[in-house]
């Protein structure tokens, strides 16, 4: 059963660009007719670079934004007509450190939000103890949020999100800005939450995060969904069986051509950074590390780094959009 249905949802923004007094209105298609559905109990990821339309989509579902066209529903409630009902069945964890009141302690924060969820005080008393125990921070209940570590704060934010026992949890870039240890811990928490039968819609621009957590991933770019499936199926859909990545300071078109010919490869990407060439190839046939090292020594190439991988979601993104997420982000920033 689908708990979230999104049909041709679109949101455009206009902003002014140009010199003072000569500014012109520019139309930006933040979300351009996306459609997807999410089953109950599923972890579904929207994966894409910054500015792809992930956050705009999640904000429309969280009723923070009105769509321009299309429709979406959460548990059958229309996000425009029944926005109050939508807010009752889902909770949203938005990015940023300050999604709690730092001058209140953990207990006061949870009581405050419990009240804003319309929950009874007795229920909140019982539930927050259970949640703090679940996240392993029961000893922090009387600590001011400003005194907590970033990881602990994230756990309180998740406790807040789970307080009304929602059926759907929206997580917008949950690990953004966290150190690697806190990010790993948070991903484990997300799995634990999913284990409670919650439906999770996650946005991220970290490929490995989407890969590790999601039952299905929608890759979104420039406001449109470019592909949607189980992460393994998306990777299997690629023609390439192996991805070769080489970093070296000696590379040229001639060596490139020989590599392509020998390994039946496609040069996916070749760019120069810090006086080094970074070359990626998709190979249509199986090959070993020895095959590559032999080729490099035959051609007098000294590699400072080299890898032979199974295709990743990054490769799926590159195949579908023609650019890497990093390049896409640099492009949109410019």
């Amino acid at each position: 059963m689908n708990i979230i249905e999104v049909d041709k949802l679109a949101k455009y923004f206009t902003y002014k660009k140009g010199k003072p007094f000569r500014k012109k209105k520019v139309l930006s298609k933040a979300v351009d007719g996306v459609s997807f559905s999410i089953k109950q109990g599923e972890i579904f990821s929207l994966l894409g670079p910054n500015g792809a339309g992930k956050t705009t989509t999640i904000k429309m579902l969280a009723t923070l934004l009105l769509p321009l066209s299309g429709r979406a529903s959460v548990k059958g409630f229309d996000i425009v007509k029944n926005d109050h009902d939508v807010r009752r069945v889902l909770t949203a964890v938005l990015p940023g450190e300050r999604t709690l009141f730092w001058k209140l302690n953990v207990r006061e924060n949870l009581h405050y939000f419990g009240s804003l969820y319309g929950l009874k005080r007795s229920y909140v008393n019982e539930k927050y103890n259970e949640l703090l125990k679940f996240f392993g921070i029961e000893d922090k209940r009387d600590t001011l949020v400003e005194k907590l570590s970033t990881g602990e704060r994230q756990k309180v934010v998740l406790s807040r999100a789970l307080l009304p026992d929602p059926e759907v949890v929206l997580l917008d870039e949950p690990t953004l800005g966290l150190d690697p240890v806190a990010a790993i811990s948070l991903r484990q928490m997300i799995k634990k939450i999913a284990g409670k039968g919650k439906t999770i819609l996650l946005t991220t621009h970290y490929m490995y995060e989407a890969d590790e957590l999601s039952s299905r991933v929608a890759i979104i770019n420039k406001g449109k969904i470019v592909c949607l499936d189980h992460p393994s199926k998306l990777k299997q859909s690629l023609a390439a069986k192996k991805i070769v990545r080489i970093t070296t300071n000696t590379w040229n078109d001639s060596i490139n051509g020989r590599f392509i010919e020998k390994f039946n490869a496609d040069a996916v990407d070749m760019h120069r950074r810090n006086e080094e060439f970074h070359v990626n190839f998709k190979c249509g046939r199986s090959l070993s590390m020895n095959d590559i090292t032999d080729f490099l020594s035959e051609n007098g190439v000294k590699a400072s780094n080299m890898s032979l991988d199974e295709p990743s979601l990054e490769d799926v993104f590159i195949e579908k959009t023609g650019k890497s997420i990093e390049e896409e982000e640099v492009g949109s920033a410019g």
Binding site: T63, R87, R98
Partner: peptide, 13 residues
């Protein structure tokens, strides 16, 4: 300014 506005907005209050 506290960064709480949109979070609060998503609640049924």
């Amino acid at each position: 300014l506290r960064g709480m506005f949109d979070t609060t907005w998503t609640l049924p209050v």
